[in-house]
Amino acid sequence: KFTDLFEKMVPMAVQQSMSTYNQRKADTVNRLVGTMREATNLCNGVLASLNLPAALEDLSGDSIPQSIADKARAIVQQGGLQSIEQLIRDLPELLTRNREILDESLKMLDDEESTDSELRSKFNQRWNRTPSGDLYKPLRAEGGNFRSVLDKAVQADQVVRERYNTHCEMIALLCKPEAELSAALPSANPAKTLQGSEVVSVLRSQLSKLEEVKKEREGLEAEIKAVTFDMSTCFLTALAQDGAINEEALSVSQLDQLYGSYTQRVQASLRAQEGLLGNVQASHQEFSSLKQSNSEANDREEVLKKLASAHDSYVEITSNLKEGTKFYNDLTEILLKFQNKCSDIVFARKTERDELLKELQQS
């Protein structure tokens, strides 16, 4: 039942190439997924600004359009306003916990260094060990990186809070029971004449194609994230054959093989959206010219637009908050490792200091 503990051990060059490869891979995945999400957000924004699909469903002018009712239900099911308010309330605590671990770690280094300097000034050249300050430079540099990452996170928290403040009123309205939501919607005289018109069915089919394009992206994102490949054998072989690893060339060509087709499919999805959005905007112009626009209809349309974009913002804020919570929790683990490194080296330095002190006092 022997399992070789050193089975996963690889030469340092391979270890470093693996970590650079993983960084490149993470960047590639983030770029592809980010591009699709941005395109979907753009699409949702354009549709919301055109009050689509609500305008097509709202031909009666008094009940809640189906898409708005669906959006309201979706938000309520995800916990509504309370769930994002709770996540927002938790952020400061997560931030403080991380800052405390970092500050404690750096304080350990500072305290040991000040004792080392005191003894150096007392014993002068007889205190012949390396100054703590020199030894702690790399750890302090690492601490500096953590500090700047935390500062950026604080800015991100602020963006999320502002986004929440901008949209919480409308999100709250979406979360209200149907009767209240319907009462808040200014009613407008019915635009029945448009019910059977050709442009309505053209717009409907364009919108369903857009939904399909967006739906496909979910599958594409899952596929992209599911890609795995073990580069270690490739790096080991290169090291064995050439005595060195051309990490960039090997990684880039491998990543291209793994993600090249996905990049094309993402581009195709973007182009499809662009074309469809163009058609939707053209059809919408025709649709709104047919619709008798009057002040009540415009007021109603404004509220419907705000409700639609409130839903999109809710989805975005929720994903931002999940990302933020994960960021802080992941960072805590990394900082705990950093803290261990600091306490290990300080412990070693203290032991060394006590021995040196004893020698000097005896001699």
Partner: peptide, 16 residues
């Protein structure tokens, strides 16, 4: 994404 990446902070630098 909104929050900074932790990828490069995860690399455990070997203490000389």
């Amino acid at each position: 994404s909104l929050y900074p990446s932790l990828e490069d902070l995860k690399v455990d630098k070997v203490m000389k």
